[in-house]
Nucleic acid binder design. Structure first.
Lengths: 214, 214
DNA sequence: GTCTATAAACGGATAGAC
DNA sequence: GTCTATCCGTTTATAGAC
């Protein structure tokens, strides 16, 4: 029973994630989050003293999830890293609203003095650095003129940009297929003997439901 | 003097663009916009009856700018289209805060019932369709397996994703160089005789100031 | 830990004088 | 067309009882 308070915190965090996903940060109200969590607004503020504290706590959840992801990344380098990232894109598609939080918040955060801005800036540095390491480690077959740091940012950009289009229009945009095509072309244009990995890209994720507009 | 009212409108629109860029939509206040425009808040509402009307008007300015851009697009097809887009990325870098509006608003807009959501969804359809047409028109040298519609979304994704990273950390992220590298690789991997265009990509935009972290 | 009640501030929008 | 004054809803945060 000592962890009852902890359970409440998790409950509130989960509710906050859902409401932030639906409305972004500034339009989300503590009352709405509290209602979702089955607690009063004042009760919520007992666990998280301000709205900003709550936001930071939500972002820290993502940080913890990132640790798992980084572990995945260590499992693949060079071309195989792209297979891992394709799986990540597919996971994001299935998670749906939970990734919407971060797209919505990252867009919001480019405004001045947004409480999440420093967090996003730091997160991009960490993520792109991590991908850069993975690319460099498997760069045996890479063309010499490729800048791994720049390429890491490009890969992240493709994932983010596709995610934005998908969130706006999920019926039409198939971000898994689009990322698969991108990764396949990238490998073919950069590596010497990529065919085994290209085959893996084709099968790593179940064939999408072909929601692309006909 | 008959256009005095029109001038006032433009003045308010410009102020709104700046404040939306700084704070996003929901956190921007009419009082702040009015102050920036040198008018009272009630005076502002005489020209734009609600805050949402003002937002729509700002988006319509972008629509008009898009028309010019579309005209540019018609000037290039296939590989040459990417040169045009590289110039666009460079223009966005120089415009700075004015593009920040749309990154901030597009992120915000993925939340439910955001007043700009429909506009962004429609805009992506138009822009990607336009790029798709340009790609297809110059597809003589394109590999047959390339899906031009999907590739158009990918190109837009790269531009948006790089822009987000650049806005968060302009000192470190060089989105022009990153897009140039992407476009060069794309052409080399897709077209039969791309070298003339690749050379154009290298010179179409002045060499960036190499702000990339050392 | 959780609640009710309320403070204190800010938001968009309206009324009406000039 | 522009202003001052004001209404009214919403928001975060606090006070204090239980």
């Amino acid at each position: 029973m000592a962890n009852r308070g902890v359970a409440r915190r998790e409950q509130i965090l989960y509710a906050a994630m859902m409401v932030f996903a639906d409305h972004g940060y500034h339009r989300a109200s503590l009352a709405g989050i509290a209602e979702q969590a089955g607690i009063s607004q004042a009760g919520l503020l007992h666990h998280f003293p301000t709205k900003q504290h709550l936001l930071i706590a939500v972002l820290e959840v993502r940080d913890r999830l990132d640790v798992e992801w980084m572990a995945d990344l260590d499992g693949g380098t060079g071309p195989r890293l792209l297979v891992t990232l394709l799986r990540l894109v597919d996971r994001n598609r299935r998670l749906g609203g939970l990734v919407q939080i971060y797209t919505a918040l990252s867009g919001e955060s480019v405004t001045d003095d947004h409480p999440a801005r420093a967090w996003f800036t730091g997160r991009y540095e960490r993520v792109t650095a991590s991908i850069e390491v993975g690319l460099r480690a498997g760069a045996d077959g890479l063309r010499p003129e490729v800048d791994c740091g720049q390429l890491a940012r490009e890969v992240v950009a493709v994932m983010d940009g596709l995610q934005l289009q998908w969130l706006l229009n999920p019926e039409v945009v198939d971000m898994v297929a689009a990322f698969r095509a991108y990764a396949t072309r990238l490998i073919r244009s950069s590596a010497l003997d990529p065919e085994p990995v290209v085959a893996l890209l084709a099968t790593a994720v179940p064939v999408p439901l072909a929601t692309h507009a006909g």
